[in-house]
Every structure is written in C-alpha cells, then in structure tokens.
Simulated scan of single mutants.
Amino acid sequence: MKKVFLVAGARPNLMKVAPVFRASRRWDSIECDIVYTGQHYDREMSQVFFEDLDIPEPRFNMGKSTGTHAEQTGAIMVAFEKICMEHKPDLVVVVGDVNSTLACSITARKLHIPVAHVEAGLRSGDLDMPEEINRIVTDSISNLYFTTEEHGRTNLIAEGKDPGLVFDVGNVMIDNLFHNVNRLGDEVTRDYRSRPLKEKLGSYAFMTMHRPSNVDNEEILSGIVKALNTIAEKLPIVFPIHPRTAKMLEEFGIKLSDNIHTLPPLAFRESLYLWKDARVVITDSGGLQEETTALGVRCVTVRENTERPCTIELGTNVLAGVSGERVLEEVEKALQIQDEPAPEIPGWDGKAAERIWDRLAKFLKA
C-alpha cells in the first residue's frame, strides 16, 4: 500500500485538493490523506464545508495560521516534519502557491520524499507577490509538475525543467467547479442565506477582494471603492467580504454604497450559486479568473498582472489594474458584451484529477 499526503493550506487549496482526493478513491493500492496546515483558518470551516466538497475532514489538521510569512512557514515546516517522520508518506502532493505549498515541499524533499506540484509553472512575473516566490521555489525542487495550461509548460521548460516530468493535465479547480455546479438543485439552495437577496436583485454584479496590495493601501482601496459605488448606482453588487477587507475599510473610514450588499465569507458552493448568474464578476482572486472563464461569465480582475494568462487570451477575463477609473471603464465594457458560449480551454473538462492519478500511480508503481 502506497501512502500519499495531499497538502492544503487555505480554503482555496481545499477546493483544489478535493477533486484529487475524490479521484484517489479509484486506487485500492493507494492510501490518500489530506493534511491541512491551518493557513488562513477561519471559523466558517465546518463539516458543511467539507460536505460541499465531498471530502472528509482532513486527517491531519496542524493549525499553523498566525504570524509573519517567516513565522508561519517555519511553524508549518516543523509540524509537517513530525507528521512525515511518524507516518512516512511515499509522496507529497502540494497545490497552488500559498506558504504551506512552499513549506511542505521543502520539508518533504529534505526528508527524501518526492513532491508533486499541482498548478505548476504559473508565473505572474511579479516578485513582490509572496505567491510568486512560493511558486518559483516549489517548482525548483519538485519531482513532478502538473500544469493547468500551456503557459505552465512553457515557463517550466524555460526554467530548465525536464520536459518528461511536466504533464499537461488540465485544471483541478475546473474539476471542482463542474462537480459542484451540477449539485445546485433547489434542495441545496433553498436554505442559502443569500437566496432571498439573489431573487430580489435579479440582475447584479458579484465582487471579491482580499489581496493586501489592494486593501492595505488607502489610496488604492479608496479609488476602487469609488468605482464600485458608481457601478452600484446602476447595477447592485453582491460582495461576500473578506475579514481583512472589512477591517481595512473600517480603519480607513471608507464607506460602501447601500447598493453594495455585503455578506460574510461563503462556502464554495454558495459563492458559486451567486457568481454563476452574475452579469459580471469583479475580483482580485486567481481562482475566480479561471472559474468564470470555464462558465463563460465576464470577469474584471483588479490586478496589474495575472499568472493565468489563458483566461485573457482564450477566456472571458480582462485585467483592469488597480485604478478605480480603469475598473469602472472595464466593468462598463464587460456589461455591453452579449452573452457568449463558454470558451473551450484544453484540459478544462472536469477530468484533470483523473489524469493526475494516472501519472502518480505510474510514478509510485501502484
């Protein structure tokens, strides 16, 4: 029996891990356990959250979520080393680009445990982003690379990786999206606290924003909110608000329009229930750029760069930068575009996790 650890360090990571875990059930010769490092832990994570993703609660929950980047990374490394030394996994699979991705990759390799990186090769070109550093370092020491789109392979080959270790499997976030969009029947959504609001508004924009580069800078945040308030005069905005964003709005004394309807952070499926029918999504999230493309929903990304260029080249996403004027301009443009069928991105077919396991099983000789 081969033993595999799937590492998740934040709620978006669990959404990426979920389809990989579900697909592992096909392999009787592999024991697969989820390790949750506790990065970005919040009290909204309950059994319902894991039921939404159709996965069990993590077998290992480390609870290492506080402190600076260095403190957090160091604490995760110490805790993960103890788990690895006790349980001796044959392979560690990391996803995405959070601190736990970096910490657990380094720890595993120093214990001579192979590492596979899901979402390998994504690059924004911005080394001021902590996530970019995490991506580069993780890819520099991984044994297997699973890419979501052709730019990932191109970046990895340019950095000197062995092409035979790079596998273009598709996007596990899209696996999770398709798995859940088909589970949004009335029996599920009738108890959503957001359902009365959605039915009342009918037509709306959907908004998420949490990146420190946007919300910790008073001038940038003020400009973005000014644009949002203008948009809300014509089209109401539904805004599940991140605790960090709420804190900074209060600290800076920045007021949202009454037509911006704030909600607490939502579980994945309830968030999907809202944004899939929005006229436009405004976000600084990486995952939402991909998910909106997969469903053909217009997306305006409030960032200067993206590590997911195919969402712009082939998809429904546009980069607006962080200027409030540009955000307003791009949202107005997006609202003028007629609905079109969702674009087809190679490998974004809901079967990426199955392709990952085909490769992992061969690697493990399981």
Score class of each variant (00 low, 15 high):
residue 234 K to A: 04
residue 186 D to L: 15
residue 83 I to E: 08
residue 285 S to T: 06
residue 353 A to S: 15
residue 117 H to W: 11
residue 6 L to R: 00
residue 53 L to V: 04
residue 114 P to G: 10
residue 187 E to L: 13
residue 280 V to W: 00
residue 233 E to A: 08
residue 13 N to Q: 12
residue 106 I to H: 00
residue 361 A to W: 09
residue 4 V to N: 08
residue 205 A to L: 13
residue 308 R to Y: 00
residue 355 R to V: 01
residue 152 G to Y: 04
residue 87 H to Y: 13
residue 102 L to W: 03
residue 105 S to V: 14
residue 337 I to R: 12
residue 120 A to T: 01
residue 108 A to G: 07
residue 312 I to W: 00
residue 130 P to L: 07
residue 325 E to V: 11
residue 327 V to P: 00
residue 249 L to K: 02
residue 87 H to I: 11
residue 276 K to W: 03
residue 337 I to G: 00
residue 328 L to T: 02
residue 28 D to Y: 03
residue 99 N to D: 12
residue 158 A to V: 11
residue 347 G to L: 09
residue 305 N to D: 07
residue 356 I to V: 13
residue 128 D to K: 03
residue 215 V to C: 13
residue 295 L to K: 05
residue 62 M to A: 04
residue 48 V to K: 02
residue 167 F to T: 02
residue 105 S to T: 14
residue 242 H to N: 11
residue 299 C to R: 00
residue 160 G to L: 11
residue 192 Y to V: 10
residue 39 Q to K: 11
residue 340 E to Q: 07
residue 163 P to E: 12
residue 33 D to P: 00
residue 275 W to C: 06
residue 358 D to E: 14
residue 195 R to L: 14
residue 15 M to G: 02
residue 124 S to Q: 04
residue 271 S to D: 07
residue 334 A to E: 12
residue 89 P to W: 07
residue 106 I to A: 00
residue 54 D to E: 15
residue 69 H to C: 15
residue 296 G to C: 13
residue 47 Q to H: 13
residue 352 A to E: 11
residue 204 Y to R: 05
residue 226 K to E: 13
residue 340 E to S: 10
residue 130 P to K: 01
residue 298 R to G: 06
residue 167 F to L: 10
residue 230 T to S: 02
residue 315 G to S: 14
residue 320 A to G: 11
residue 1 M to W: 06
residue 330 E to L: 15
residue 67 G to D: 14
residue 1 M to A: 10
residue 185 G to V: 14
residue 118 V to G: 03
residue 265 P to L: 12
residue 220 I to G: 00
residue 363 F to C: 12
residue 274 L to Y: 03
residue 91 L to I: 14
residue 199 E to T: 10
residue 6 L to E: 08
residue 52 D to T: 08
residue 212 P to V: 09
residue 45 M to L: 13
residue 120 A to R: 05
residue 171 N to M: 10
residue 285 S to V: 01
residue 301 T to H: 02
residue 262 T to W: 06
residue 321 G to F: 13
residue 145 Y to A: 02
residue 82 K to G: 04
residue 11 R to T: 01
residue 128 D to T: 05
residue 177 L to G: 01
residue 125 G to A: 09
residue 140 S to K: 02
residue 37 T to W: 09
residue 69 H to G: 12
residue 20 V to Q: 03
residue 325 E to G: 04
residue 9 G to V: 06
residue 279 R to A: 07
residue 242 H to F: 09
residue 222 S to Q: 14
residue 199 E to F: 05
residue 152 G to F: 01
residue 287 G to N: 11
residue 117 H to Y: 08
residue 262 T to V: 15
residue 218 E to G: 06
residue 210 H to K: 08
residue 244 R to S: 07
residue 257 S to Q: 08
residue 213 S to R: 00
residue 182 N to R: 13
residue 211 R to F: 06
residue 321 G to W: 14
residue 278 A to N: 09
residue 170 G to Y: 05
residue 296 G to H: 06
residue 188 V to Y: 05
residue 340 E to W: 10
